[in-house]
């Protein structure tokens, strides 16, 4: 929609050109959320497109996803054959409520920064042990695991003016076998619960990531041979009932039910 309060669009070619930050400023990535709701408290858009960040960079250390990487670019990514967990990429791309047409503009970083519980890029990158690189206006840089970056429903660790530069997915995580479970109230709708498990090829430890059902991602590391009771105890201990999301895409009790159901299925699938 037209954002009638916007008076200025800045199109810098690098982050160092943006020295000041004021209330009313907003970074513009794909714009697919910014332009979907009135933004009456925003008057200036600062376009990231001119930064020219390489969308996807493969290295010995893993995969570096620029914040401005379009969803379509990530979906089209051809991973090395031994990156077993790259199979999560198309699954998570297909976990958007939004149409594939939106993928042409929407970005991975934008999905993280929105920090909605159902953000599938949050599911993907947190399950793959992603670490965000954050840039602040004073030129400092810090790193945070994605699972810690998102702190609540539409809340995250970003400070004013700070931006997400990239998300690094470590090679070890990309090589793990995985299990994926998702439920939506309407067919192909918004995720009511999205759980991902990965298994360490060396020690068979399971990393379980709970997203969409809960206000923020929750991660659990289980040793090989973990029992269902142990998984349930861990969920019980970590996720209080009021941490399950209550909105039109699912009730907290059903989300909790799905979380336990899928956690058990993932445990069974990966605990070979």
């Amino acid at each position: 929609m037209d954002l009638h309060t916007i008076t200025t669009v800045l199109r810098p070619s690098g982050a160092d050109e943006v020295q000041t930050w004021a209330d009313g400023h907003a970074w513009l990535a794909g714009g697919t959320w910014l332009f979907s709701e009135p933004q009456v408290h925003t008057d200036t858009l600062i376009d990231l497109e001119g930064f020219g960040w390489e969308p996807l960079k493969v290295s010995d250390a893993g995969l570096e996803i620029a914040a401005t990487c379009r969803i379509v670019q990530l979906d089209n990514f051809k991973a090395p054959p031994d990156w077993v967990a790259a199979g999560l990429i198309p699954r998570c791309c297909r976990s958007f409520l939004a149409s594939y047409k939106i993928w042409n503009e929407a970005t991975v970083g934008g999905n993280l920064v929105m920090s909605l519980p159902a953000g599938p890029m949050i599911s993907l990158t947190s399950a793959l042990e992603g670490v965000c690189t954050l840039w602040s206006r004073d030129g400092t840089e810090r790193r945070l695991p994605v699972a810690e970056f998102v702190t609540g429903d539409n809340r995250n660790a970003l400070r004013p003016g700070e931006l997400v530069r990239s998300i690094h997915l470590p090679l070890a995580a990309l090589r793990k076998p995985f299990a994926f479970r998702r439920f939506t109230l309407t067919n192909l709708g918004r995720s009511e619960a999205l759980l991902i498990g990965t298994r360490d090829p060396d020690d068979a430890a399971i990393l379980l990531t709970v997203t969409a059902a809960t206000l923020r991602p929750y991660q659990f590391r289980f040793p090989a041979g973990v029992s269902n009771a142990e998984v349930r105890n861990a969920l019980d201990g970590a996720i209080a009932d009021d941490r399950y999301l209550d909105d039109t895409h699912g009730s907290p009790r059903h989300r909790k039910h799905l979380t336990y159901l899928f956690a058990e299925q993932i445990r069974a699938e990966l605990g070979v």
């Binding site: 669009v9 714009g31 697919t32 332009f35 979907s36 149409s99 047409k101 939106i102 042409n104 503009e105």
Partner: peptide, 21 residues
Amino acid sequence: GDCGACTVWVDGRPVHSCLMP
């Protein structure tokens, strides 16, 4: 961006033009 009535092609790719600056 939800209903698609505004779909146009930009450089041959379909986009929801209500979401595109």
